[in-house]
């Protein structure tokens, strides 16, 4: 084998060995861009779906939406430039505005959306506990009155038992 042939053979082996890794890397990044797209709202204006899931009615065709594909392409471009995930999201928000958030930001007015359910639950639980304790007090008072009432006679209890037995037989 000549030297040139030897170099070619080594190069071929290296390419064969590295190519799948490159393909896998590219594939992983395509999927990652898609994943990141799920954190951003599709700006097609026809739905509230993310760029990663926008298949809304009224798009170019019902899945995937053309605008979403374009946004995922931009995300891919940012990833290719070596940006981190946070920087990609920040760059996209800078470009498309706060309307591109998939969930409200945890600051400013967006914080209201996050806090409200917790406040409802805590306030509601407090109310329920208050109501229960109030109704319990009434229950205790009523039980006191019942306890002082005339007890049920053994004859009446026996009659009830017989009636119950008859009903069961039927």
């Amino acid at each position: 084998m000549t030297r040139a042939r030897r170099i070619l053979a080594v190069a071929f082996v290296l390419i064969v060995a590295i190519a799948p890794a490159i393909v896998v890397q590219v594939q992983a990044e395509i999927d990652h861009a898609h994943e990141l797209g799920k954190q951003l709202k599709c700006t097609c204006g026809g739905c509230e779906q993310s760029a990663g899931t926008c298949y809304h009615v009224g798009g170019q065709f019902s899945g995937p939406c053309g605008v979403a594909k374009m946004m995922i392409g931009e995300i891919q471009k940012h990833l290719d430039e070596g940006m981190t995930d946070d920087k990609v999201i920040a760059a996209m928000i800078k470009e498309y505005g706060p309307g591109a958030y998939m969930e409200p930001p945890k600051q400013g007015f967006g914080l209201v959306a996050w806090l409200m359910p917790g406040i409802y639950l805590i306030a509601g639980a407090g109310l329920v506990l208050f109501v229960i304790s109030r109704w319990r007090k009434r229950g205790v008072a009523a039980a006191g009155k019942t306890a002082s009432a005339k007890p049920v006679s053994p004859e009446l209890l026996e009659r009830a038992r017989l009636l119950a037995q008859e009903a069961t037989k039927e």
């Binding site: 954190q39 591109a100 969930e103 967006g110």
Partner: peptide, 12 residues
């Protein structure tokens, strides 16, 4: 309240 529309999607 703020003049800009903040989206609320599935993650929220």
């Amino acid at each position: 309240f703020t003049g800009s529309r903040i989206s609320v999607g599935a993650p929220f």
